[in-house]
Design a protein around this nucleic acid. Structure first.
Lengths: 339, 339
DNA sequence: CTGCCTGATGGAAACGTTTACGTAGATAAA
DNA sequence: TTTATCTACGTAAACGTTTCCATCAGGCAG
């Protein structure tokens, strides 16, 4: 309606647009009096600079993008909390995009983002069957700074913030073995990503070093469909009654495991013991309390955003050497109790 | 580095910038052949239009803002899912801002957003002691379309998407009474908002119609500090041993109630019965399973975004009459079982 | 008095689009 | 023939900032 812009302010003050602009930026080349006059009027008229004009001119958007598989997941929502906290503190805006673990959707989104809409990008790659990362390479070539967190695409030479996935996989599996399990299922997702492979390798190594043969039919690939996962696990448990332990490498699979056990009447931990990666705040209130490997999700978000914004502000490229690995924690609870 | 823009395309094709621009928009005033030439080159060079230039020129940003208290909460994360789904489908980008239930932070954010950065806004107001909504009024005056969801500011004449809060409060309380409770605590938040008042009135009415006296010392105001809330509830339960029911009007307070009971060794549902508003997917897996009033969070997000985008696209103002009320559902579970 | 600096301001270009308007040639209508 | 209409394209202004480059007054040194 009534656009309050630099032109209007300049007219009302009998100044040029240039001077008004400089005054609002506290430029030293405008007199103190003028600055005050300008700022007073700007405040009175509730002037807000047009972000798009500014971005266009300066070629900087003060916006970062966050591309993640989903938000209805405690790991990612906590990470967003961390990201938003540092973005906000440094005056950055946060655009959010959900891939729903869909490779094509992810490609669409990254395509959008090659347009300079964001100064940088925080990303956790979608888990899918595909090993095709060409969309990410294209994105990378188009220039914005990228930092991966948790789910990394290793083919891009940039920084990442991850957790000690190999050790976590090892520890979780060892924990089950020490609790007496001998037939341990590995429920995974993200077979195409390093994170999946690392956890898998930890699982494998733990079995080996405790003299348990690796059985590939005990490795199950879940999807982002909870009901489907529950069915998958239910069938498996029915067909393989010897199964006495389950290692869920993502939160949703731990939940589905509980539901499968409930449906089949298998007692946790008496019949089957379960450990899962999870940031569920109510893990200790579950029936029974769930043993978790918990990632420092909030810190991961903070750290990733910090690396990204530092690079943007200094206009330095992001190097793989800036990568950070944080440690997860195993919280033993009733679901893996030795009776 | 090498900016692929209209000018470059125009040069390479020996066309004017205008023609290239029109060709890319499938304008009828450019020949089919030319269109094809332009599109081919654009694809080859991976041309992406500069979003800021376009927004500046058209005065439309294809971006909506979402302002919510927190994201680490199933209600809001599901709502975001719904919002993102419709935004994405219509080619809109989603900016996210978290208030952490902090009035000042909310004011800061809304101040940012008066700058035309977004075409519209979806908002769930922060719960705080303050009844001061001047920041929202200022925002409203500055023009962007606003739709509230769940947490409404009634002083602004715009649309909202809410649930049947009065009935839900009534139902929850009645459910506890019918399960045998006589001393029912109401754990609330958002005393400054209509949503809080409505649920409260439902609680009040249910007590009255069942001949139970309203006791205002049984109404507790929580905050967004989980540990603090747990302490508050623990103290209350200790001081008032007659309490046999709790109605938590937000998810986090239900969780804190469980923790308080656990700490004090009160059995649920034998000693105390609990019902809470919640979108926790694992409610049925809790110990004991939690009776919930579940809001259709995803649909709320979808609905709110739909109203907003329709208004933006048609450039119609949003009217209060477009408001929608969806129904929540009571899921009785073990936590309110009669024995 | 001239020349030079300094401090405060204005003019205008630039960022990459979109779009109102103009135009040239071709075809059709009068 | 003239005039109108249409097609396909170009010119240039506009969006609101930022910023390079003047300009101009005044002070001061030579």
């Amino acid at each position: 309606m009534n656009p309050v812009n630099l032109k209007l302010l300049a007219q009302k003050l009998n100044l040029s647009i240039a001077t008004v602009s400089r005054a609002l930026q506290d430029s030293h080349e405008v007199s103190t009096q003028t600055k005050e006059r300008v700022k007073a009027l700007a405040a009175e008229l509730n002037y807000q600079p047009n972000a798009y004009a500014s971005s266009l001119r300066r070629n900087v958007s003060k916006t970062i993008g966050v591309v993640i598989p989903e938000v209805n997941n405690h790991f990612f929502s906590l990470a967003i909390n961390g990201i938003e906290a540092v973005a906000r503190q440094q005056g950055y805006h946060v655009l959010i995009y959900l891939t729903h673990e869909d490779h094509d959707r992810e490609a669409d989104i990254t395509q959008y983002l090659t347009g300079g809409r964001v100064d940088g990008l925080l990303m956790s790659v979608a888990a899918s069957a595909s090993q095709d990362f060409s969309h990410l390479k294209k994105l990378y070539d188009s220039k914005p700074a990228i930092v991966f967190f948790d789910r990394v695409c290793e083919e891009l030479p940039t920084a990442s913030v991850t957790t000690n996935d190999y050790e976590s996989g090892y520890l979780a599996t060892q924990h089950l073995i020490e609790a007496g399990c001998r037939h341990i299922v590995h429920l995974m997702i993200a077979g195409n990503l390093s994170i999946g492979r690392m956890r898998m390798q930890g699982y494998h190594a733990a079995l080996e070093s405790h003299g348990i043969a690796f059985d590939e039919t005990l490795v199950v690939n879940g999807s982002d469909d909870d009901d489907g996962n529950t069915h998958l696990i239910t069938d498996l448990l029915r067909q393989r009654p010897e199964i006495d332990g389950m290692f869920a490498s993502v939160e949703r699979l731990a939940i589905s495991s509980y539901q499968a056990c409930q449906a089949l009447g298998r007692a946790i931990p008496a019949d089957v013991k379960i450990v899962g990666f999870s940031n569920l705040g109510v893990a200790s209130l579950l029936n029974p309390a769930l043993t978790t490997i918990t990632q420092p999700a909030y810190e991961i978000g903070r750290e990733a955003a910090t690396i990204l914004l530092r690079a943007i502000e200094k206009k330095h490229p992001i190097l793989p050497s800036q990568s950070v690995v944080l440690n997860s924690t195993l919280f033993p609870r009733r679901s893996t109790a030795r009776d």
